[in-house]
Design a protein around this nucleic acid. Structure first.
Lengths: 202, 202, 202, 202
DNA sequence: CATGAATGAGGATTCATTCAT
DNA sequence: TATGAATGAATCCTCATTCAT
């Protein structure tokens, strides 16, 4: 069936271009990476690029949206229904999943952390909206935690910022390391302990 | 004294251009802001710009370096000598000073947080080096704190990342608010409490 | 007969593409109309287009040549042999036939009047040659008319231009109307009267 | 005065570019003439072109508008007030002035006659509006002439088209000659006689 | 010092045409 | 024959930087 194989080929090409663009953007940044950089990496002709994407910006957006979608899938609201895992375990799961994604897609995270906000109003808004959703999620979890006495009284708006900042910075650190940490679980525990127990000795 | 007044004029012009560039860059981003944007804002001729700065990039670097220098001045190592203020007070002082700077120079922080890392290898390195110094400082403080039993045992490399992330994200949040918070001290206490005591209720 | 039906199919395809191109060119102009426009209208694949025509330019030329051929057929030299219709009637016949063609193929005339001359040297030459033939025909008729005393003495080169201009402009006007005139005969009479008797009251 | 000489230089540059564009467009047509063609002819850098015109299209429009403005100035309504020159003389004046312009600016007329209508909706509209104004002027003159018994009864809408077509075609013919006619007055008389008295011998 | 006209390298995008299937 | 994915030359336009005045 010509259609099936053709469709498969189309998907492959697209993926190939996305891969090349991911590399180019994360190495040179959106502006310095030219369409030539992308097509050379992908080994395709100039026109082919525009067969699959509307513009250089379009590829970038697609990469970003792809990552944000995967990120969303990593982050699950804490479920306090009886029979669910311990809240701390669920928290740990969220962070573990995000870090797995970070390690699987370091280039995309590079883009998210260092490029997307600086591009223009549109992508800034896209990213902002995403973080806002995450902040909301954290805030609501904190409020719920406070209500049931699990979390000490605090200002959820500020604290959710602290938590997001922590996760983002550790993500950046992980990428900078260039290699996965020897013990991911210990890493996540360290972060969790920081957030839950703080640093003071008792 | 012709020289003196001339020199003073030179300094003024320079400052005027830096001001204009600060606005232009923070509103449009480094790439979208053109030299035209800057000179129009500054009310000077195109050629004059290049009498004071080598390139568009140069102004950006100068702005960044200026901010980094001011930031450095805000952050003082914890002094545990007898007679010094309480370590927690010194910590608080650091954060307070950083936040004052954030509120005084929101545009520059915008650049630092959202533009500088994405520009190119050079500025990425500059910013990275700065953050690395801050991380080192925190790490050494943590190690010292652990040695004297003030801080519980932890992995200083990871935790310093967490702390830096927290401060950065709250800085971004402050800028996004668009206005200074009603009670800065409470804000800083909230952050400190998060870092020191964590979130769990006892 | 496979060959016959195949040949018939070929002819149909060709005509179908010509039709689509005619629409596309007259709506958007030669340059703005893309091969995509044509094949979409024709409902064929990109490659198929090039099975029937050598290039985008080729279709245009074929359309133009088709029109010029039909136009040529409309214009018949005035026959002064005894037994022929009145010269004025023959003149009228020429103009009537041209106008019928204009009304039948307004799109092609659009191309002839507004596109063909502006394309490049080649089509300019093609069109120029056609008009030159028409001018020659008119000139010879005028000269003959003068010889037999039907036409007053005049400069045939200039007057033939005037006549051609009249016919062209009225053709353009007809197309712009968007609909056939209520009384074609009156229209042609008006033109003929203009050319034969002029505008002055006696 | 720097300003004065600067302004003069600006005007010169602009004129220089307009000249180069006029040549390029009339030789190759709007589409085939590239900005490179224009700047090479003008002996300027690419960027300089865009210092004086917004786009390639912009220069074309400016050329066209310039010509239309000059054309408008050539065409003056017939003034029937007592003491004015004879109507026929005024008519003759109009045609003479138009032809002088044609001979002075053959390239611009080339653009008007063969390029402008085929470019796009915008310039088509510009040109159409101009011709419409001319047609209106002729129509009103005809109606007036009929009222005062100078012109025989006719359909002004059609006849004004005939007249416009005559003038346009003769203009095109003049340009094609490549050189001014030996006796311009005789040429104009020929045209006028055609329009006023027609071709029939008495 | 100041000016701003001129420069030209660089980059994104289009689209007629080809060719393997 | 028919298809449509791939090609890459061609083109317009931007903008950081220079330099003669």
């Amino acid at each position: 069936m010509a259609t099936a194989s053709t469709r498969a080929a189309r998907v492959d090409r697209r993926a190939q271009i996305l891969r090349a663009a991911k590399q180019a953007f994360s190495q040179k940044g959106f502006h310095s990476a030219s369409v030539s950089d992308i097509i050379e990496r992908a080994g395709i002709a100039r026109g082919t690029f525009y067969l699959y994407f509307e513009s250089k910006r379009d590829v970038f957006d697609k990469l970003l949206e792809e990552l944000l979608a995967e990120l969303r899938a990593c982050i699950r609201p804490i479920d306090l229904a009886p029979g669910s895992p311990q809240p701390v375990e669920q928290l740990k799961g969220n962070i573990m999943r995000v870090q797995e994604l970070v390690l699987r897609e370091p280039e995309l995270f590079q883009l998210l952390l260092h490029q997307a906000r600086g591009l223009d109003a549109q992508s800034a808004a896209l990213v902002h909206a995403f973080y806002q959703r995450v902040l909301d999620l954290i805030e609501r979890s904190l409020e719920h935690g406070m209500r049931i006495g699990l979390i000490r009284p605090c200002n959820p708006a500020i604290i959710s910022s602290c938590i997001l900042g922590t996760v983002k910075e550790v993500a950046g650190w992980l990428i900078a390391q260039g290699q996965p940490p020897p013990d991911r679980e210990a890493l996540v525990d360290e972060i969790l302990n920081f957030g839950l127990r703080g640093l003071l000795a008792r």
